[in-house]
Simulated assay, not measured.
Amino acid sequence: MTDTRMLDQGTQPIRFARGWHCLGLASDFADGKPHAVQGFGTKLVVWQGGNGELNVLDGYCRHMGGDLTQGEVKGDHIACPFHDWRWGGDGKCKEIPYARRVPLRARTQRYETVVRNGQLLMWHDPEGSAADHELLPPELPDVMTDKYTPWSWHTKEINGSHCRELIDNVADMAHFYYVHFAFPTSFRNIFDGHTATQFMESKGRPDTMGGGYGDENSTLKSVATYYGPSYMINWLEVDYKGFITEVILINCHIPTGPTSFTLQYGISVRKPEGLDEKTCAYIAERYTESFGDGFLQDVAIWENKVAVQNPLLCEEDGPVYQLRRWYEQFYVDVADIAPEMTDRFEFEVDTTKANEYWHAEVADNLAKRAAAEADAEAAAPADA
């Protein structure tokens, strides 16, 4: 018998999460052309019909398997490139130009859609339920107005990880220091119903080169809430040398396979009063780069780690198991959702011990850097 703790890598869920998923900016699909989106183990076709509505169907024609994303939008319908079968946004075949009648069973998989905050969201449920509009993320009333900069939207394909790795970050206080180069000075979670929220305050580390959350001149107040399994709104207040900026970060993903997903993130910045449009755009671009760097720091971890079903935790690691129980509600039938998945749960991490150690480590790093710079200066040849 060994005392060694073994890693349980488990098996990834075969099904995909029930809930609202963001496919991207609605404007990117509003050009009258078919668009391919990889998701839920298949390919989806997205198009805007002549009536202005955005539609999402399974990407393969039910006639003989033609790729609808290679087809053509004709009126309100998407026409298959193979035999010109024309499908409506309701999933029904509307016309077969060479046939007298459309077969009664000519239906395909459709997905209900909503445009929210300038983004196209679709409802996915393995049980085939109607979309639950009460579970939509909230409207952001000032976004998409001249009070905020336009969305800066980015996409990254993640391979080798289940999307739960992304969700785990909600409860992970310590990784903000080691991965994102910040001191989390306050950190707590609330899980309630279909939402999971992280409240954090942090400041950057002076012993790193910045990037992500790590600018030593910045302090950060963050409230990040997942609305369902895949769509997070992160309200950020950044204090940079006394200059306050309000940022809204959307962090969302589309599962593409058991060990892959498409990460998407968008940033919009409230325009500071008294600044011209060019300066506001510059500020938004800098924050986009900064938080984009933060996502890439996570990606480097996800693509090289293994899944762990039985993580070995200390007190400061936060409520990882409780978060995973919350997340499980989206992977079981509605009838099997247990109270412990949705009951309100609150937890605050005591960051005292962590910050005592981290500040000492940073001070030591700075002292070593100063000594190395002094040695380098002393060894440099004198100017002629």
Rank of each mutant, 00 (worst) to 15 (best):
P13I: 10
P13M: 12
D28P: 02
D28V: 05
K33C: 07
H35Q: 07
V46L: 06
W47P: 00
G49Y: 00
L54W: 04
V56F: 07
V56P: 00
D58L: 05
G59F: 13
G65V: 03
D67F: 08
D67T: 05
G71T: 12
V73E: 13
D76E: 14
A79Y: 11
R86W: 07
W87G: 01
A99Q: 09
R100Y: 05
V115Y: 01
Q119W: 06
Q119K: 07
Q119F: 08
L121Y: 08
H124P: 04
E127G: 09
P137C: 10
Y148K: 09
W151G: 01
K156V: 11
E157G: 04
H162M: 08
C163S: 05
R164C: 06
L166E: 04
D168M: 13
M173Y: 02
F176T: 07
P184Q: 11
P184R: 11
S186D: 14
F187Q: 14
G193T: 09
A196W: 11
E201M: 06
T208Q: 14
M209G: 03
G210N: 13
G212M: 02
Y213A: 15
T219C: 08
T225E: 14
G228D: 09
N234Q: 08
N234K: 06
F243R: 03
P255T: 10
F261W: 07
T262V: 09
G266D: 07
A284E: 15
E285P: 01
G292F: 02
D293L: 13
G294W: 02
F295N: 15
L296Y: 11
Q297F: 15
V308M: 01
E316L: 05
E316R: 05
V320K: 04
Y321F: 10
L323N: 02
R325A: 04
Y327K: 01
F347I: 06
K353F: 03
H359A: 02
E361C: 01
A376V: 05
A382V: 11
